[in-house]
């Protein structure tokens, strides 16, 4: 049982969105997510605890992550999203593709 849990934990990858998400350099975050997906993780957690706002570049990068995850049938979870950002994701339809926690 313990081994199974550990295995499950190993297949969940967490990425911190940070402030980089809102710049062109945020593509590195997308690249990292793609790496985790290719490495076989079945749940990708994107943590927004260090992200104050998400602009259009950030949304575009997150769409890239969602697209890559959907092709690999990887589940995407957004955590610690601020209320404003959460509302924005909902309005734009991102929440149709991810689980908000």
């Amino acid at each position: 049982m313990k081994a199974e849990l550990q295995k499950q934990e190993e297949r969940t990858a967490t990425i911190f969105a940070g402030d980089y998400l809102n710049k062109i350099t945020g593509e590195k975050i997308e690249l990292e997510c793609r790496r985790k997906i290719q490495a076989g993780c079945d749940t990708l957690v994107v943590n927004f605890s260090e992200t104050e706002i998400v602009n259009s570049i950030g949304v575009s990068i997150l769409l890239g992550v969602i697209d890559a995850a959907s092709q690999a049938e990887t589940k995407v979870v957004f955590t610690e999203v601020s209320e404003d950002t959460s509302q924005l994701f909902e309005m734009l339809g991102l929440t149709n593709h991810v689980t908000m926690q």
Binding site: S60, L92, G93
Partner: peptide, 15 residues
């Protein structure tokens, strides 16, 4: 590249 990000991200266009 940045302009494409901004365009897609402004309306959440997938591709």
């Amino acid at each position: 590249q940045t302009s494409l990000h901004l365009l897609l991200g402004s309306l959440a266009i997938m591709r």
